[in-house]
Design a protein around this nucleic acid. Structure first.
Length: 596
RNA sequence: GAGGGCGUAGCGUAGCGGUUCAACGCGCCGGCCUGUCACGCCGGAGAUCGCGGGUUCAAAUCCCGUCGUCCUCGCCA
């Protein structure tokens, strides 16, 4: 029966044979991970994406076969036929899933050879990322990458299962669309049929998903490809994937509950991790006040505390003058850092200055003994109540800053994140989710001296703040929500405006005439004239999510073929200069300055 | 657009107080080895130290410029 199969048809993968399979005649196919030639014996680890299996070549059994095995080199593609047998006593490799057994080779076919590799395939070295990207097909064969691709697949599958079970439709929206010159820069695609005209690649399916709601598709989701021609970061790629969701006839908590359910299901299915729901919620004001940032990393419990009332009239001049001029004094406690050196203290002060603090006042506790410039100014009783307020333990370090409230909060927030890294502070959880709600609807663009939408122009204001729209628009809070995971903005959404009058009002505050607004978003506004249901939604960064799930800092690690930091593809060389014939067909001319 | 890190054999790194400093590990090639599993042992090939200029008797090392790459800020509704 085995001979009826072409030599590359396998009976098993390289990750599944166990002791119970002993005696079976099997055929494996894969890549040579390693050949260990002991002279009289040869062991070959054969690898596929499922795992590794050891193959044993014994010259006493078959000398020709043994000679053939001597030629095997790394990454040759081979198929091996043989008998599954238990390894001899004491030779079991417990660190290997297939470590109980080995294949006694009876037949070996070299299906393809391989050149000497451009890098080492083992996991024991850091590799230059551009080199990995240039040979991504080799990189993908390495186990960490194979595992991440599997996790990404499982996550996508779980997301689809969940939404399907909840009556959502997965609908694809166009990736060739009209450009809306707002926000991030578009990638443009010239049209041959319409010379001089371009399509834009979507930055997100935002407008289309709202149109789907008008179209009655009341529960929509999509794993949507999005494109932004902006500068890159470790968590930003020019093309990326988001879990895009929109629902009709719902309010904010419906979306929040649905997404919590989705994440809970997905973490369980893809990672085997049980998440606790509901996730904590915090208003934007609370987040800024307690953490100095709109995406707090709740894996670390430290919060910013206002101590103005506890330090007033202390005689400590910086504090007194700041408080007299309407500023605040705020602090943060660093657990276990009470015994830091002078040098480390200076490092913190330098960092504080970098973040915009005029100075940082330290209060260090060493076995309960306070050490601080403040000890001269505060009585032991006041110092003690300050310590209680700051929840400082016997070996903790408290840092104070004085100045304008929001400025020092933001700076202390940055300092908090720096300290977490610098002192490797212990995490209280692996995955800390958080909803941040009640964002400001508008923000003031200092450069252009105009009011703009904080989220986007279709975000609805909170009903209770609508009366402020004409008088104090910057105080209006929005029905928008962000989901934060480990200090990373994972997703952002809102309840949309479906009321024309309100929409016009928003445009007016933003300084857009109805003509201008119609020019930009005409097709959406038109659609809203034909019966738009109340609706809202959210979009989550799928790459960011899977990166965090797999413990990676960079989303490139969870994308099969990513671009590098310069938005280049080291493998294909994209982007490339178009050929003159292509430009001719498109009736385009390049106007690029000559290279120096 | 700005700041910072890095650039030494195919890969990962050391050397960076100026004069045996071009080294180590992996990989590669040759030889030996019957229970290895990051196999072991012996030997070998392989690098104008990113590129250009400068300082010096002497530069991988110091200085200037430039290119590449990574990280961050700006930017990213």
């Amino acid at each position: 029966m085995m001979n009826a199969l072409p030599e590359y048809r396998r009976t098993h993968t390289c990750g599944e044979l166990k002791g119970v399979d002993r005696g079976r005649c099997v055929r494996l196919a894969g890549w040579v991970n390693k050949r260990r030639d002991l002279g009289g014996l040869i062991f070959v680890d054969i690898r596929d994406r499922y795992g590794l299996t050891q193959v044993f070549f014994d010259p006493a059994k078959n000398e020709t076969l043994f000679k053939l095995a001597e030629d095997l080199k790394q990454e040759y593609v081979i198929s091996v036929e043989g008998i599954v047998s238990l390894r001899p006593e004491g030779m079991i490799n417990a660190s290997m899933p297939t470590g109980e057994i080995e294949i006694l080779a009876e037949k070996l076919d070299i299906l393809n050879d391989a050149c000497v590799l451009p890098f080492n395939m083992g996991e024991h070295q850091n590799l230059d990322e551009n080199l990995r990207m240039k040979y991504r097909y080799l990189d993908l064969r390495r186990q960490p990458m194979a595992e991440r691709m599997l996790l990404r697949h499982k996550t996508a599958r779980a997301v689809r299962e969940y939404f399907d079970a909840n009556n959502f439709l997965e609908i694809e929206t166009p990736t060739l669309m009209s450009s809306t010159p707002e926000g991030a820069r578009d990638y443009l695609v010239p049209s041959r049929v319409h010379p001089g005209k371009v399509y834009a690649l979507p930055q997100s399916p935002q407008l289309f998903k709202q149109l789907l709601m008008v179209g009655g598709m009341d529960r929509y989701f999509q794993l949507a490809r999005c494109y932004r021609d902006e500068d890159l970061r470790a968590d930003r790629q020019p093309e990326f994937t988001q879990i895009d969701v929109e629902m009709s006839f719902i309010e904010r908590d419906d979306i929040i509950n649905m997404i919590e359910g989705m994440l809970k299901y997905t973490f369980d299915k893809a990672l085997g991790v049980s998440l606790q729901t509901p996730f904590p919620r915090m208003t934007w004001h609370e987040a800024m006040d307690l953490y100095g940032i709109d995406k707090p990393d709740l894996r670390y419990p430290m919060i910013i505390t206002d101590v103005s009332d506890n330090v007033k009239d202390s005689g400590f001049q910086v504090f007194d003058s700041t408080l007299a001029s309407g500023g605040r004094v705020r602090g943060i406690t660093v657990p276990g850092a009470g015994a830091i050196s002078r040098k480390e203290g200076d490092e913190i002060i330098t960092k504080g200055k970098e973040f915009g603090l005029a100075g940082v006042v330290t209060l260090a506790f060493n076995q309960g003994q306070p050490k601080s410039p403040l000890t001269k100014f505060l009585s032991p009783e006041r110092l003690n109540s300050l310590r209680e307020l700051m929840k400082a333990g016997d070996d903790d370090l408290v840092l104070f800053a004085a100045g304008e409230q929001s400025a020092i909060s933001v700076a202390l927030g940055k300092l908090r994140l720096f300290l977490v890294q610098r002192f490797q502070l212990p995490k209280t959880s692996e995955f800390a989710f958080l909803w941040v709600i009640d964002f400001p609807l508008f923000s003031f663009n200092e450069e252009e001296k105009r009011i703009e939408a904080e989220h986007h122009a279709f975000t609805s204001p909170l009903p209770q703040d609508q009366h402020l729209m004409d008088t104090e628009p910057l105080k209006v809070r929005s029905n928008a929500y962000d989901i934060v995971l480990n200090g990373v903005e994972l997703g952002s959404g809102s309840i949309r405006i479906h009321d024309r009058t309100m929409q016009e009002k928003i445009f007016k505050v933003m300084g857009l005439s109805s003509e201008q607004a119609f020019e930009k978003f005409g097709f959406l506004l038109k659609a809203f004239e034909y019966g738009a249901p109340p609706h809202g939604g959210i979009a989550l960064g799928f790459d960011r999510l899977t990166a965090i799930m797999s413990g990676q800092e960079s989303i490139r690690e969870i994308i099969a073929f990513p671009k590098n930091h310069q938005a280049l593809c080291p493998m294909t060389g994209a982007p490339v200069t178009p050929a003159p014939e292509q430009l001719k067909i498109l009736k385009l001319k390049l106007d690029v300055p000559e290279e120096k």
